[in-house]
Simulated assay, not measured.
Amino acid sequence: MSNTSPMAAKRDVLVVANLGLGEKFLDHGVLYQHGLSETFADVALVSSEELMSRVDRVDRSRQLILFLDKDVALAELLELQGAVVVNSSRAIEICDDKRRTYAHLAAAGLRIPKTMMLPPVYPKQQIAFGLVMSMIDEIGLPMVIKEAKGSFGAQVYLANTAEDVFALVDALADRHLLAQEFVASSRGRDLRLQVVDGVCIAAIARQHPDDFRANLSAGGVGYPYQPSETERRLAEASANAVGGFNVGVDLLFDEGNEGSIVCEVNSNAHIWRLSAISGIDVTRYVGQALGRWLQQ
């Protein structure tokens, strides 16, 4: 680890990623470093741990940081120390907790699946039987059970029967959970739209032949896709609802085969496959948008 904090050396942009998580996260950071280099003269890629510093020593040197991590506390600390962090700590916090994501989407009047939050319980406790039964009555079967925090399609489960629901709720009772309507018209397929500075700049369709989830990291296949104006506006409104500058928005297909239902908003979406499939270099758009934003 470097003994010199990158905050001490003035950069045009710092790209911050949790590089210790493996090659996929390193590649993600390198992509952005290269893309932003077309707009900014000095772009440094650093690991999140290199920015760990004494909280009681406030560095007021202003810095632009593209934050590709989910460490909300670190992002907020950097903001309090004078840095401009994109996405903001608040946007990351909202997107990284699906309970908060859906609350903000619903408050903005955007269509989401029927969704209920389950209260967390203390160890050795169970969620009340009556609550689970009322949840089944309200949402119907099959239903999707989601952990509030999760990435790449993990921590998302399909419950086909009441027995499945009770088994999942019991097994995951110590975690924050949501119960959600299963949108049958979108089984194994969805849309991913990338929104940068309020504008949808790229989109792909995703499909999985054997899974209800369409995530590419879960084995799904991506295809080029031209979103409708309605789908573009919905993705842009979703990004605005969570305060995201650079986000990936997942839309589910309704019965009319249009992506009109918001599934999730991702503040730290990996973009290399979306860029490869769509033919659009997301990182260049992000760099250009940040450059325009700094000139305002």
Rank of each mutant, 00 (worst) to 15 (best):
A237R: 14
T115E: 08
G219T: 08
V85D: 02
L19N: 00
L290I: 10
Q296H: 10
Q226R: 07
P209M: 02
Q296E: 12
Y225V: 00
P142C: 05
G153Q: 04
A289F: 02
A214F: 00
G29S: 11
I201F: 03
Q296G: 13
Q194G: 12
L118N: 05
H176P: 13
L77H: 14
G219Y: 00
L74N: 10
G20D: 11
A91Q: 02
G82E: 09
D69K: 04
L36P: 09
S267K: 07
G279D: 04
R62D: 02
V58S: 12
S134L: 14
A179I: 09
I261L: 04
I136C: 07
V55K: 15
D174Q: 13
S228H: 11
Q155A: 13
P227K: 01
E49L: 10
L80Y: 09
L274Q: 01
V72W: 04
V144L: 09
G244S: 01
L178E: 03
Y32E: 05
G82D: 08
E163D: 15
D42Y: 10
R273T: 04
W272S: 13
L118V: 08
S186C: 06
S278P: 00
P209K: 04
S47M: 01
D56E: 14
Q288D: 11
E147V: 13
V121D: 04
E255H: 07
V55S: 15
R206K: 07
A289D: 03
N246K: 06
E147M: 11
E50W: 12
I127G: 10
G219C: 08
R213I: 03
L64G: 01
L172Q: 07
T4M: 10
S278E: 00
Q295S: 15
V58R: 12
I94C: 08
L131A: 11
V55A: 15
R90L: 15
W272A: 14
A269W: 03
I277S: 00
R189F: 00
G153R: 00
Y157P: 02
Q296K: 13
S53Q: 15
A128N: 11
A218D: 00
A276I: 04
G222M: 00
Q126R: 13
R284V: 15
L45E: 06
V282S: 03
L14Q: 02
A276L: 11
V221E: 00
R213E: 05
P227Q: 06
G248Q: 01
A179Q: 10
A9R: 15
I145W: 01
C95T: 02
K70H: 09
R111F: 05
G150L: 10
I280S: 01
F67I: 08
N240T: 14
A41Q: 14
E93L: 10
Q33D: 02
Y122R: 14
S238Y: 08
S186N: 07
Q125C: 14
R189E: 03
V121G: 07
A184P: 05
